[in-house]
């Protein structure tokens, strides 16, 4: 298509986009810069990666990095699997109370985790999971929104696909695995991506249920560094860059799963 927009309009868009890009990238860039550069009294700037060595060695970030990766991977995988399991009967099977179950599951969206942290904490302690990585994963291994998105995706799959598989003798489990999951891959990938982003950043809940240093996730460890190395902020900055790099790589690799049409599904109903 031939664009008839006058140059002025283009210039305006470029200006707005440039400002927004600076705002979006600025603070993260500043953090990276602040982790390696210091200004001395005479106004000169000196460069050093010492903060990284110090963060890694004294801050002992290797363990938290591994913990964060484990927790994030487990939460993303479980979020997809459990939500997709629940969504299958809700979308495709007939049984008594189906709609009631669906509405009740969705109603849990109304209950903010921040409101129920106290009983959640006691349940975790009661299950003997306090200060374990499982405690971080289990309560958030499925979300009502995830179930909703999967149900929407399954409802789009033509009935004939499922009937053909049943004709070939496939049971519910095989239909779910071989028909439903592959055909709703875009939705499942988006759900996985957003679970990864959420789990990687999560602070409140891990802070509550994790206690020992060896079980800390990266955000918890960084939160600890903030107090501990109050004199040298660069150590906390270096640790932050370490937390930022993996998730940016995930974003770069998974950009195509950042789909607005899947999110739009939540709007269009």
């Amino acid at each position: 298509m031939i664009d008839r927009r006058p140059p002025m309009v283009w210039a305006w868009w470029y200006a707005v986009a440039a400002v927004l890009v600076c705002v979006a990238v600025g603070p993260a860039a500043y953090l990276v810069l602040a982790s390696v550069a210091t200004r001395d009294a005479s106004g000169g700037v000196s460069w050093s990666f010492a903060a990284y060595a110090s963060a890694w060695r004294d801050g002992k970030l290797g363990g938290p990095l591994v913990n964060s990766i484990l927790v994030t991977a487990a939460r993303a995988a479980l979020n997809v699997i459990i939500a997709a399991m629940a969504a299958y009967p809700l979308a495709r099977m007939r049984f008594r109370g189906r709609d009631t179950v669906f509405v009740l599951l969705l109603a849990t969206m109304m209950i903010p985790e921040q409101v129920v942290v106290v009983p959640m904490f006691r349940t975790v302690v009661g299950l003997g999971l306090f200060d374990t990585l499982a405690a971080v994963v289990v309560p958030f291994s499925v979300t009502a929104l995830g179930i909703y998105l999967c149900r929407q995706a399954f409802a789009q799959i033509p009935m004939e696909m499922e009937e053909a598989a049943r004709m070939d003798g496939a049971g519910s489990l095989r239909v779910w695995w071989h028909v439903m999951l592959p055909l709703s891959a875009p939705t499942l990938s988006t759900l996985a991506l957003f679970s990864v982003i959420g789990a990687w950043s999560d602070l409140l809940w891990p802070l509550i249920v994790l206690q020992s240093r060896e079980h800390a996730t990266l955000p918890v460890a960084i939160s600890g560094l903030m107090g501990q190395f109050a004199t040298d902020a660069r150590v906390a900055y270096a640790a932050s860059v370490l937390a930022l790099v993996p998730i940016v790589l995930v974003l770069a690799a998974a950009q195509r799963f950042m789909r607005s049409d899947v999110l739009g599904g939540a709007v269009k109903g």
């Binding site: 603070p27 993260a28 990687w200 950043s201 602070l203 990266l218 955000p219 937390a243 930022l244 998730i247």
Partner: peptide, 9 residues
Amino acid sequence: LPVVTPTIV
């Protein structure tokens, strides 16, 4: 980029 940045960072 800001969305994926961990809040503490």
